[in-house]
């Protein structure tokens, strides 16, 4: 039988110099799903980043650095920390925090423009989504 670990709560993530050492979901990531999350839905990373490996998808952004070779520059733990909350690694960065649930100004209900109702706030990506994205990012090597 498989043992499913509890995901780490967004408020309980431990950052060390911006990096997060252990899997947030307790599971390994799925790089194929990670590649899908880079495109649409809550990830939409290519709104801001270009990625050669995803060149079949239209319209890559220029707001952040190209992610080609990103695994040569950062370790898996660092990439996990950057995706979970880039503001810890890069002070004041424009990159949204994908695994964060508090500290927002005028939090809305998704893209409706209406206020977020009382009740729990979902992070932009789930713990497993983060792991999937990170497992895709670690494949982006050039060296």
């Amino acid at each position: 039988t498989m043992v499913f670990a509890e995901p780490v709560d967004p408020t309980a993530v431990v950052y060390e110099d911006g990096a997060v050492a252990v899997s947030l979901s307790g599971q390994a990531g799925d790089p194929d799903n990670g590649a899908i999350l880079m495109n649409k839905g809550s990830g939409n990373c290519i709104a801001c980043h270009s990625v050669e490996a995803l060149s079949h998808l239209p319209f890559h952004g220029e707001v952040g650095p190209p992610l080609d070779g990103v695994a040569d520059r950062w370790s898996e733990a660092e990439l996990r920390g950057i995706v979970a909350n880039a503001k810890v690694m890069f002070d004041g960065t424009m990159m949204p925090a994908f695994y964060k649930t508090e500290g927002f100004t005028r939090l809305g209900d998704a893209y409706t423009g209406k206020a977020h109702a009382d009740g729990s706030v979902q992070p932009l990506l789930t713990a497993q989504d983060i792991e999937d994205v990170v497992s895709f990012l670690v494949t982006l090597k050039e060296e």
Binding site: N44, H60, G61, V63, M94
Partner: peptide
């Protein structure tokens, strides 16, 4: 939730593509 200001897009990034 995306923590973006007008200035992030129109001052820091004008001329850049966002998607």
């Amino acid at each position: 939730q995306l923590e973006l200001s007008c200035s992030n897009c129109h001052e820091d990034n004008y001329g850049n593509m966002i998607r």
